[in-house]
Amino acid sequence: MTRTEIDIIAVGKLKENYLRSAQDSLLKGLNHRAGISVIEIKDEKTKEGASLKELERVKNLEGKSILKHLDARARIIAMDLRGKKTNSDALKKMLAVEQMDGQKIQFIIGGSLGISEEVLAMAHRRISFGDMTYPHQLFRVMLLEELTKLI
């Protein structure tokens, strides 16, 4: 069986030590079973009270940076609040299908404004961990934790 290759393309850096520590610990355990890379995209600053047009511009700038890292041969999974709600079992089945095909998997985690429509259009799947909203930095750790149970 081939080694699973997974990229997590995430907007923003982990600023808090406890989140970086959690990420590093989870990656260490996961990398024994799969090739996991975290690619951090610069988060664009948004002014307080910015207009909708400005917010969309910022989201599109982040999207352009994400697009530079997408692999045309990979299965792209966007983590999107409007995506199909999933649970651990469904995610496990989905990953099993992708692994059987030998596909590299790229998870996209947008910034606080979400993911640009251009990036969402490139995604093979759009999934959500539910209706609750999590800070995107914390969500990265949550995704890694979920992957430790599934890979």
Score class of each variant (00 low, 15 high):
M1R: 08
M1T: 09
R3L: 15
T4D: 08
T4G: 08
T4I: 15
D7M: 01
I8M: 08
L19F: 14
L19N: 12
L19K: 09
R20N: 14
A22V: 07
L26D: 11
L26S: 09
K28D: 03
G29L: 06
N31K: 12
A34F: 11
G35L: 10
I36C: 02
S37P: 06
I39L: 11
I39K: 11
I41K: 02
I41Y: 03
D43S: 13
K45N: 01
S51F: 10
L55G: 08
R57Q: 12
V58L: 05
N60I: 01
L61K: 10
K64N: 13
S65C: 05
S65N: 14
S65G: 10
I66L: 04
K68I: 01
A72C: 09
R73S: 15
I76R: 10
I77R: 03
A78R: 03
M79Q: 00
M79S: 06
R82I: 00
G83C: 02
G83T: 04
G83F: 02
N87E: 10
D89R: 15
D89K: 15
K92N: 11
M94T: 10
L95W: 03
A96D: 12
A96G: 12
V97S: 13
E98I: 14
Q99N: 14
Q99L: 11
Q99F: 13
K104D: 00
K104P: 07
I105R: 00
Q106V: 01
S112K: 07
G114A: 05
S116R: 00
E118M: 00
E118P: 00
L120N: 03
A121H: 06
A121M: 06
M122R: 10
M122E: 14
A123T: 04
H124Q: 12
R126A: 12
R126T: 09
I127T: 09
S128P: 02
F129K: 01
G130T: 03
T133Y: 09
Y134P: 04
Y134Q: 07
H136S: 09
R140D: 05
V141I: 07
V141C: 07
L143M: 00
L144K: 07
E145P: 07
L147S: 06
L150F: 06
I151S: 04
